[in-house]
Design a protein around this nucleic acid. Structure first.
Length: 603
RNA sequence: GUCCCGGUAGCUCAGUCGGUAGAGCAGCGGACUUUUAAUCCGUAGGUCGGGAGUUCGAUCCUCCCCCGGGACACCA
């Protein structure tokens, strides 16, 4: 952005005087006379200012657009005949979305042309706002102090509602903080009234005026100047909001199609304030997580997304190619191995919040790229990490609750009772053994496991390896029954190639997963720091990969080299941020917690 | 991948027991200087997801395909 433009926005540079002029400009004379200079200078005060445009043609039956554009519809075409400009010839075939102008968009183009023909700039550079909507609503003097001086305000936002009344109009302007009503009167606006008649719902405008109360008591900006900041050429699917007697708001006819809302998130957000609030809560949750970890002495770091050797999880990677290096690279499936390298280097507490990529299916709980939090804590084992996870979840839930406000009532996961530490702790093997009615599940033969899995309803057991069978059995018999937050401890070694063996039971690892509402929220280990053991386990993975298991990774020699220098013992945790936010807000589809989820191409 | 439900105007939907479709809102024209789902009058807007079949005739019936939603399966 040019420096001059930036400077022009700085308060105090030129705007104090300008605002003084603009707000009291309660007559058409002021709108026409004083704003001309500002328009020429900055190109952003767009009140009608051209004396050539005084000709009062708006109400004589001829629209400004008819003059402004040669292709404007003919007078006779309005009644009965087809509009001359309707669409494109059939022979042109299907057009892209942007080219296929429907009649609504055509009308807006004509208004745009009329605005330009009037010498106005329909897309502004800046606007000197003095109040957000919420601030303006709070700034009006109490109703009883009738003699209070009028409060001048300049608000800016999108027109979300419009009620024309001939020579007046009421509208609602929405910004980041809420909505405020604006009242436009021809007698207050003078020449600028011409612009008011060319506004549409969806336009981004600045409104200057004074605060007043309507007869029904609603705080309203009585406009003395209107500035078009961006003409909306495509109609947003605004619903009409009906305020019920009990105070609830019923919206009629808004954008409902879930896929379209995801695909055009900008429209979804523009039309649904509660969706903005929902995603803002996600951001606040992440901020709270950062603050919590920072407060514990963690350092936030960034590690490569493009990796020559993927690892840290069992998943199919995306593959890409670096041309200059002529090298195959993978998009990371986990942050783990790089973060643990950093602990070798001496950063004792590190975390990363970033995207992992897994080339697998898309459904209501899976997006090919997703946000993962991983944190590693030197000299701690997994028991310490359980305490940290508990506190972290409580903090995250509090942030979401605060950010959602009334919307938080959608879910019961946010109340203090549900997430009150300490969470329940159960051991993996005894729990599963009890469900199976056997002394120890790990003593079962593969055949017995297969039979048990079949009984549990697990499909495709014949092709499963022993670790996979164990995992499936636990998932089918235990995980989905865990409603209240529960740590499951000590997973079988064969399921956890990066975890330390359990002290006292080498068939298990020191690992926990946290479940609640039947879904996994966290996964953590006492991290394996023996490079020789690690090499054996990675080589076993490589054998699986060479045998065709696309989810198994290879041997990361650089990671092993780092371990060989000496890796401190540490606890490590991974938390899927999308899933956590789904859990906390009771959201059933991952698409509804990711601003721009992966979708099929259009058409 | 399997099963079920759905796809009709810009948005939200109705409808046709087979005779090429309607409403509300949005739009356009008119009236209206404190309205708030503003109201009133007028008006325009649709290859009824795509293809094939049956039929004199298909948006409707049959088959195939595409897309979406839900359930199950898969998924550290």
């Amino acid at each position: 952005m040019p420096a001059a433009t930036v400077a022009a926005q700085e308060p105090g540079a030129c705007d104090e005087a300008a605002q003084e002029q603009a707000v009291p400009a309660g007559t058409g004379e002021a709108a026409g006379g004083q704003s001309g200079a500002r328009f020429d200078e900055a190109g952003r005060e767009l009140r009608l200012a051209d004396p050539q445009l005084r000709a009062p043609a708006v109400h004589d039956g001829e629209r400004p657009s008819d003059r402004a554009e040669g292709h404007g519809r003919a007078q006779g075409a309005r009644r009965g005949d087809r509009p001359v400009h309707r669409g494109v010839p059939q022979a042109a075939g299907r057009r892209g979305v942007s080219e296929d102008l429907n009649f609504v968009m055509q009308a807006r183009r004509e208004k745009l042309a009329a605005i330009e023909a009037a010498g106005l700039v329909p897309f502004a550079y800046a606007y000197d706002r003095t109040h957000h909507a919420a601030e303006a609503l709070a700034a009006i003097p109490p109703a009883e102090s009738a003699d209070a001086a009028p409060v001048p305000v300049r608000v800016a936002g999108r027109l979300v509602n419009w009620r024309g009344h001939g020579k007046t109009a009421f509208a609602h302007l929405a910004d980041d903080t809420g909505r405020i009503q604006c009242y436009f009167r021809r007698d207050d606006l003078g020449e600028a009234w011409r612009l008011v008649e060319l506004l549409d719902i969806g336009d981004v405008v600045g409104v200057a005026g004074t605060l007043m109360r309507t007869r029904t008591g609603e705080t309203t900006v009585q406009a003395t100047a209107v500035t078009l900041l961006a003409k909306s050429l495509r109609p947003l699917p605004f619903g009409k909001e009906e305020l019920q007697a009990d105070g609830t708001v019923v919206r009629h006819g808004a954008l409902e199609d879930g896929e379209q809302r995801s695909r055009q998130r900008y429209a979804d957000l523009a039309v649904h304030p509660e969706v903005r609030r929902h995603f803002a809560a996600r951001s606040r949750m992440i901020s709270a997580i950062r603050a919590h970890l920072d407060g514990l002495g963690y350092l936030e770091v960034e590690t490569p997304v493009l990796q020559p050797q993927y690892g840290g999880a069992m998943a199919k990677p995306f593959t890409t190619h670096h041309n200059a290096l002529d090298q195959t690279l993978y998009l990371r499936i986990a942050d783990e191995l790089y973060l643990k390298r950093l602990v070798v280097g001496g950063f004792e507490r590190v975390y990363e919040i970033g995207h992992d990529f897994r080339n697998e299916g898309i459904d209501r709980t899976h997006n090919p790229e997703f946000t993962m939090l991983e944190f590693y804590h030197a000299y701690a084992d997994y028991t310490t990490m359980m305490d940290i996870v508990e506190a972290l979840l409580v903090r995250a839930a509090g942030a979401v609750r605060d950010a959602l406000g009334p919307l938080a009532e959608r879910t019961g996961t946010l109340d203090g009772d549900f997430l009150a530490p300490p969470f329940a702790r159960v051991a993996w093997a005894p729990t599963l053994s009890a469900r199976l009615g056997v002394p120890h599940v790990l003593d079962l033969t593969d055949a017995a496991l297969r039979a048990a899995a079949t009984r549990a309803g697990v499909a495709g057991v014949d092709a499963m390896s022993r670790p996979k069978l164990l995992d499936e059995l636990f998932g089918a018999l235990v995980e989905r029954t865990l409603d209240r937050p529960t740590f499951v401890l000590d997973y079988p070694l064969e399921l956890s190639p990066l975890a330390k063996p359990k002290r006292g039971d080498p068939r298990l690892t020191e690992r926990f997963e946290l479940f609640a509402r039947g879904t996994e929220l966290a996964n953590a280990f006492s991290e394996l720091n023996d490079p020789l053991d690690q090499r054996r386990r990675l080589e076993a993975q490589a054998v699986l990969r060479d045998a065709g298991d696309e989810e198994a990774s290879g041997v990361d020699e650089d990671y092993l080299r780092a371990m060989e220098y000496g890796m401190p013992p540490m606890g490590g945790v991974g938390i899927g941020i999308d899933r956590l936010f789904m859990f906390l807000t009771g959201t059933s589809h991952i698409r509804d917690v990711i601003l721009f989820p992966a979708l099929r191409p259009e058409q």
